[in-house]
Design a protein around this nucleic acid. Sequence first.
DNA 1: TATCTTATTGTCTCAATGACCACAAGCCAA
DNA 2: TTGGCTTGTGGTCATTGAGACAATAAGATA
Lengths: 242, 242
Amino acid sequence: MSNITTPTHSHVEPLNLPQDVIKALSIDNLVFGLDNDELKILLVKQTDPMHQGKWALPGGWIRYDENLRDAAYRLLEELTGVKQLYLEQLKTFGRVDRFPTERVVTIAYYALVSAEHYSLVAGQSAADVSWQSINALPELIYDHAEIIAHGMKFLRHQVCHQPIGFNLLPEKFTLLQLQALYEAILDTKLDKPNFRRKIMKMNLLTPCNEKQQGVPHRAANLYRFDSDAYEHLTESGFSFEI
Amino acid sequence: MSNITTPTHSHVEPLNLPQDVIKALSIDNLVFGLDNDELKILLVKQTDPMHQGKWALPGGWIRYDENLRDAAYRLLEELTGVKQLYLEQLKTFGRVDRFPTERVVTIAYYALVSAEHYSLVAGQSAADVSWQSINALPELIYDHAEIIAHGMKFLRHQVCHQPIGFNLLPEKFTLLQLQALYEAILDTKLDKPNFRRKIMKMNLLTPCNEKQQGVPHRAANLYRFDSDAYEHLTESGFSFEI
DNA sequence: TATCTTATTGTCTCAATGACCACAAGCCAA
DNA sequence: TTGGCTTGTGGTCATTGAGACAATAAGATA
């Protein structure tokens, strides 16, 4: 049955909510994580009998006195322990029948992070939390599969048009690391020499004049992303394209 | 005081709404119109004493049994008489204090149309409806100025990456009309043969097998935008670029 | 030294772009 | 009727960038 204290969608009918949340309006977070060159998404396992065994996006109800993004951060941390990341609004989903028994509109937020940099802690109302491979998603509640599909489409588009991938790498990285990142997100193979030329011609990377350490082969040059150059270029009409 | 029948934000405190709408959740439409090479936006003048003289985006409350976009279409037509256009979701705005006295989150939809193709009819709860120049906006209620600013930024980006410009033309148009449109929006000159080839190669236009009428020179072929082809191409990873 | 792995450079082909030319079609005025 | 005007449509050509792939360089290791 419904549980007043849970911030997840773990309720049936009728909606039985604390007085300080906005009814009919929820948040769902899509946290994409790159884990060993594989793209995953952060999901929580449901506890209530109604959805036993099913998984869901970490989300829940918005309080009357909190801004949308603040709610997204709070809910994400409460359910998964994940914090210190940048959530961006994705889209609002409100199909009449997306939620059983009640009309609930949900605002989706998303982020792209490096999975190994975060430790997961399942919240009270979550049976489990884990990174799940995008290519083998478990059974999801409501329209969460649809939301994830939309998020994937958006992510693949963004990654080609904004240099968001650089966030996933350490400050100093090799060109092959960068390439592996794009190959994982775009789920494709890229030609090494061509990728290198394309990136270098953008003038967004500054060489560190250092080489990789401790690799059993020729060490690659290290580069760092020059965000100032990027700011400057975008103002001049430059558009990032991969 | 509040007015039960109005779908606009013409209420003070407390919210007094018909039972069949979702409380704390509204729609606002940004309808951008190109009017003689000037960009304008469709606004409605408020009737209630609280906001007398101020203008607002056409919007209002969502019914329990209608999808978000359907609500956007209904509200737009009820308030302005404008219909038969394509509304796309822009962003959801939910700052805690964006609305006085109550927490109201609003979902913004937007469209880009040719202003002269639409006749405006002020709805019951609107004192006036008109196209207002983007560069000289009147005083707006709540955070509508902020929403418009965001919409403008988004529009300028979208025009280059999505074929939204086609909406500004009649159903059947010549390639030169299309070119003139982009030259106006992008404020640049384009080469006629090259523009023609670029557009035609996208396979987004279907020839009407008709020619222009009543022009004092050789008549150009008429084309129409093939939205089905566009849908199909985007799914195959095609990206529109001008 | 031979060999392995990865880094980096070079080269070739092809497609797309942009600048520009040429002709076609239709109207109009002499 | 004819030549001139405007706009539509097709062509050429040089340049550029992407992609496929070969070749060489730099370490590390056995």
